[in-house]
Design a protein around this nucleic acid. Structure first.
Length: 241
DNA sequence: GCGACAG
DNA sequence: ATCTTGTCGC
């Protein structure tokens, strides 16, 4: 096995993203997504990779499935994994997707009736340098509707963390309010969402796959008890033993 | 040289 | 991602 220089690896990954990008579906595809109260939605998933100390090679891949709308734990899976790909901003999916997919496949094999109808992903979807972040990548490869929820702003396509952005954040009065993240070409790539009344710092929501931005935003908000939506937050509370 | 850098 | 407790305030 030869190891590619990072520059070559990035080129290879860029072309893979460009290819998979074409498969992203940016609209609602499920009946429950059209209902004002999400009637028909019963299971919401969340995925995350967590690390320890200064170890950036060994991680814990976690998947939870919560009931909707009660957000009670229906299923949890936690698996120690050894990462092979480096972390490079813009290419997070190549590092994490394989293990998140494995977790979904374990669930599909053992308890298919518990498969989530939508997955909230820790990271961006279309709000990405090439409009193909982790949530899109996992969505396309799994075929499941996915939503990207990032906790920090990625400065992409002209969206900057400047004075204007700060004042837009300050203008969000209560949970559920949002403002668009618009690229220089005029496309709304995602939205900054004040996820709860008690949190000032927004989360950044974008389309992953098989869902519209408005639906993604509404669902994300309805999954928030605190700043980070429950499906992702409850990953942090999964038993690692 | 300085800033940016999802997780 | 993680290193890191308490503390002040609502």
């Amino acid at each position: 096995m030869s190891i590619l220089p990072q520059e070559e690896l990035v080129k290879k990954w860029e072309s893979e993203q460009a290819s998979l990008r074409q498969q992203v579906v940016e609209e609602d595809t499920e009946d429950w997504q059209r209902c004002p109260d999400f009637t028909g939605l019963e299971r919401v998933g969340g995925v995350d990779l967590s690390f320890i100390k200064g170890d950036d090679v060994n991680a814990c891949a976690q998947l939870v499935v919560l009931s909707y709308p009660d957000l009670e734990l229906l299923y949890e899976d936690s698996q120690m994994v050894t990462l092979t790909a480096p972390y490079i901003s813009g290419f997070l999916a190549f590092r994490e997707t394989p293990y998140l997919l494995e977790a979904l496949q374990r669930l599909e094999t053992t308890q298919p009736s518990l498969l989530p109808q939508v997955v909230l992903v820790d990271g961006n979807g279309l709000f990405h340098y090439r409009e193909f972040g982790l949530a899109c990548h996992l969505g396309v490869l799994s075929g499941l509707p996915c939503i990207g929820v990032a906790k920090n702003l990625l400065q992409v396509q002209g969206v900057e963390k400047n004075e204007k952005h700060q004042s837009q954040i300050a203008s969000l009065q209560k949970g559920g309010e949002s403002f668009p993240l618009t690229s220089d070409s005029g496309k709304v790539l995602g939205k900054a969402l004040r996820s709860s009344d008690s949190s000032t710092k927004p989360v950044y929501v974008s389309v992953g796959h098989k869902i519209s931005l408005d639906t993604a935003l509404r669902l994300t908000h309805s999954c928030c008890r605190y700043r980070v939506p429950e499906p992702i937050r409850q990953c942090w509370e999964v038993d690692t033993s």
